Computed example of a mutant assay.
Amino acid sequence: MASPRSDFGALVRAWRDRLAPADAGFAVTDGRRAPGLRREELAQLAGLSVDYVLRLEQGRAKNPSAQVVGALARALQLSRTERDQLFRSAGLLPPRDGMISAHVPAGIQRLAARLGDVPIGVFSADWTLVWWNTMWSAVFGDAAVVPPAERNLARALFGNGLAHAAMLPVQSERGPDVFEASIVADLKDAVSRYPGDAQLDRLVQELRGVSDAFAQHWATQTTAARHTTDRKTIRHPEIGDIQLDCDVLIVPGADLRMVTYTAATGSSDAGKLDLLRVAGVHTAIALPERETARGSWGAPGM
């Protein structure tokens, strides 16, 4: 009888073979032999090392964390039922109902992958970045270099850790105060809808303790408009300022926000996006505490 760990590896391998590369945003070439994703492609999508994915598939890596299993489930574009099966095969309880979900439906991932010319990031209800495409990395840097718990926009705006250090300078046309207030308003709304989510509660309590600005926005009785659209100026260290239209699209039924950045056809900013697309230029950022990595991660602005 197969052990749960071997079941886990077999599931990952089977679902990797099932996923069409084009649906995950990868070009299909004539010399490609694998029917589905290559191991290195899955590792890239999940933000893991190729060696770790290999050891997971072979059953040599034991006790993957919930974050790792969740990242693999998103990368493999699993349904909720399949995601829960993967969690159980890893000896973990699946995410409970009534908690903020980081699950990105396969259809949303396929849609985003087909819009490869547009920088796209998908955020959960607490503004944690859970999925991004290649152009997002080209504009903001690879979010995989930042620990998963730090890929949170509120932490980037108001915290004092790696998330804050990794953010590029971005200016909002509406001004920093209006933008910050809108993000806090989104978190207030999330707290009202997910009162039992301990991770969300910890995030709010943490930011109230380290940021006077967050505490003031949280305490205000004025209801701020939720963040939906804006015009941003991104200061890219390689190609200079890029002015882009930022739109936040709500995914019905999934409580996700798909953030897109676009420029008018023929504009100089569109030309800069084309340059990033062709050259694959990434930002370079120095993280504190001797953690240095090539790449940053993007956010809807500040």
Rank of each mutant, 00 (worst) to 15 (best):
S267G: 09
L244A: 14
H164G: 03
T220C: 07
Q243Y: 00
L207Q: 04
P148Y: 02
A254L: 02
G196E: 14
D269H: 14
G91E: 05
P195D: 07
A219C: 01
E82P: 09
L37G: 09
L11F: 13
V130D: 03
R208W: 02
F87I: 06
F123G: 06
A190N: 05
V259K: 02
P288H: 02
G175F: 05
R18T: 11
R294Q: 13
A286M: 08
S192N: 11
H236Q: 03
R83E: 15
D126S: 14
E289I: 08
H282W: 11
D274R: 13
A125Y: 07
S49Y: 03
D17W: 05
D255V: 04
N152S: 13
A75L: 10
L19M: 10
F123N: 08
A14G: 11
G31E: 14
G116W: 04
V118R: 06
L187V: 14
A14M: 11
V145L: 01
G25T: 09
A106V: 03
A90C: 09
D97W: 02
I108A: 11
A144R: 14
A2W: 09
S211C: 07
R32I: 07
E57W: 01
L86T: 11
S101G: 12
S101I: 04
S172T: 13
H103L: 09
L187G: 06
R277W: 05
M302Y: 11
L45M: 06
L187F: 07
S3G: 14
L93F: 00
Q67D: 15
A224M: 04
L187D: 09
A73W: 01
L244E: 08
G301F: 02
A113L: 01
R290C: 05
D255Y: 03
A143R: 05
T228N: 04
R174W: 10
I100Y: 04
D142R: 07
A20I: 05
A143N: 08
E289K: 10
E173D: 13
Q216K: 12
R257N: 12
G141F: 03
L93W: 00
K188C: 02
S49T: 15
I183T: 09
L162A: 12
S6A: 11
A143V: 08
A138I: 00
L19F: 03
D269E: 15
S267L: 04
A284M: 10
A198R: 14
L72K: 01
Q221I: 08
E40I: 05
A154D: 07
H227Y: 15
R13K: 15
G36F: 02
Q67G: 13
V184W: 01
D51F: 01
